[in-house]
Each structure stands twice: as C-alpha cells, then as structure tokens.
C-alpha cells in the first residue's frame, strides 16, 4: 500500500505534465486557426468596405485624391492573361513528365527526375524571377509572356507530382488488360491510363493556379513596369493583382490601402475557393479510384 501511494505523487506529477503538454498542443493548433481567422476577417472587413464594381471595370485613376471612379481592371486582365498563358505552358510539360516518370522511366532515372522536380519546387520564386530576367528580359524587355514563363516554372513540379501520384495508383491490371488485346503501349497509356487521371490533373492544375495567381516575386523583374491602361497584349508587360497589392501596400495613401484590401479580398477569395474545391475534388476522385483498385 505504501509503495502504491509513494507512486501516486509521481503519477500526479506525470499527469500534470501530460495535461500541460496536451494543453500546449491544443493551444498551438488553435493559434494557427485563429491567425488564419484574424487574417481572413481583416481582409474581408477592410476589403469588403472598399470593394465595388469599379474595381473590376475601371482602370486606376492617376490622381487618387480626386473622386473619379478608379479600379484595377487592368490588373485583373493582366493576371488572367499571365496565369492563363502560364497554365497553358505548364500543363503539357507537367503531365508529359509525369507520364514519363511513371510509365517509361527506369527506377533510377525516375528517382532522379522526381528529385529534380521536388528541388525545382523548392527554388525560391524570387530566384525564378531573376532567372527569367536574365534569360529573357535582359534581351527582350519585360512582357507578360516572360512573367508567364516564370510562373509556369513554379507550376510544373506541382502539376507533374500531382499527376504522377495518381498515375501510380492506376492498377497494373488495367494496363495489362489493354496490352493483352495487342494494343500498343502509347494507345494504352493515352486511351486507358491517362483518362483515369484527368480528375487529378484538373485538381493539380487548380492548386497550381491558386498558388501562382498570388505570386508577386516572379513578376517583379518580368512584368512590373506597366502603365494604368487596360492591355491584353502578352508581348507587353501587363499589370497584375499581386503586384498592385504590393505597390499599394507600400504607399502612404490610405486610398491606396483601401484598394489593396479590396484586391486582396478578391485574390484571397479566389485562392481559397480554388484550393478548397481542388481538395474536395481530389478526395472524391481518390475515393473513386479506391473503389476499383
């Protein structure tokens, strides 16, 4: 009995430590959620107060102290053009590399390519911007195309890895079923294997778009010297939403801040909705794949 009670003191202390640690972990998780909440609420409140239709239909008025309607139509158009072209560049490269990685490459080669993609994914966006500056801008000047190329470099590893992960889940039996018919490898890959990964490609692309739509760093050196006119031509440097937010955030003028918040609200809504949708899609297609695995 005495041994047991002697132990009780130790146990009480151990329990207390346990409770403390559990409380810390719980608090940490809630702190992260609270920070997200504060950020979203700040953006929603301040952006919501400043947002109006002019934001999408008017270009910036050169003198913000006048009461002329002013907006960021040029930045929205520019972001759409730049991200659209970047997606068009990155999807084929990403998907095709994933096919090579999963369907053709030997184990060792696949290992190296996957490693290279992961490392590429870790290259800082600002360095990618400097790279495209050195490769293109130094010779041809800034353009939306240069910005798109920079963004596509960030997208390729995301799309490739997302596609490859799902290609790896396609059962070998499906490939064998097609090959046993005397169907060649390329038709098997494109006709039977790839259609099963469309969902994953869409998800991966959506996540990649959500990520780069808010990227500022790669555009600083590639598509930043812009006027306030509405432009569509990708051979010119085009304005973009994140860069406008960046500029306005460093401005001393509260009117600029208001526009930055409004643009941030649009951007964050797009990004969060896209990420959540993509996640939901991914979960659904993974469940469907699991069904006939």
């Amino acid at each position: 009995m005495s041994a047991l009670s002697a132990n009780t003191d130790g146990l009480r202390r151990r329990r207390a430590v346990n409770r403390l640690m559990e409380a810390i972990a719980t608090a940490a998780a809630f702190a992260a959620v609270v920070v997200l909440g504060i950020m979203v609420v700040s953006v929603a409140r301040r952006g919501g107060a400043a947002i109006d239709l002019n934001l999408f239909t008017k270009t910036p008025h050169p003198f913000s102290f006048t009461n002329q309607p002013s907006g960021l139509a040029n930045a929205f158009v520019g972001t759409a053009v730049i991200v659209g072209i970047a997606t068009a560049m990155a999807v084929p490269v990403g998907v095709l590399s994933a096919i090579y990685l999963n369907e053709f490459a030997r184990a060792r080669v696949a290992f190296l390519i996957a490693l290279a993609l992961d490392v590429l994914n870790g290259v800082p966006a600002i360095v990618v911007g400097i790279f495209v500056f050195a490769l293109i801008v130094v010779h041809h000047g800034q353009s939306a195309l240069a910005g798109s190329f920079a963004l596509s470099i960030l997208m390729i590893p995301l799309i490739a890895r997302a596609t490859q992960e799902v290609l790896a889940l396609v059962p070998q039996a499906t490939r064998e079923g097609s090959l046993a018919l005397g169907v060649s490898r390329w038709r098997t890959t494109l006709g039977v294997v790839l259609p099963q990964t469309i969902g994953a490609i869409v998800t991966g692309t959506t996540l990649a778009v959500a990520r780069v739509a808010g990227e500022t760093a790669p555009l600083l050196f590639t598509s930043s010297i812009v006027g306030d006119r509405l432009q569509w031509n990708p051979h010119l440097a085009l304005a973009s939403v994140p860069l406008k937010i960046f500029e306005y955030s460093e401005s001393p003028d509260p009117a600029d801040h208001a526009r930055a918040w409004a643009a941030a609200l649009v951007l964050i809504s797009f990004v969060l909705v896209a990420s959540i949708t993509a996640r939901a899609l991914a979960a659904r297609s993974r469940r469907r794949m699991g069904l006939h695995r």
Binding site: P171, A173, T174, E176, G177, S178, A180, G182, V192, P195
Partner: peptide
Amino acid sequence: IGMVFQKPNPFPK
C-alpha cells in the same frame, strides 16, 4: 493471342 485475367479488369469506361 488474347488474355483474360484472374481478377476481372474492365476499363473504367
């Protein structure tokens, strides 16, 4: 020379 496998493996089509 065609083949039918142990587990049915219809294409997801």
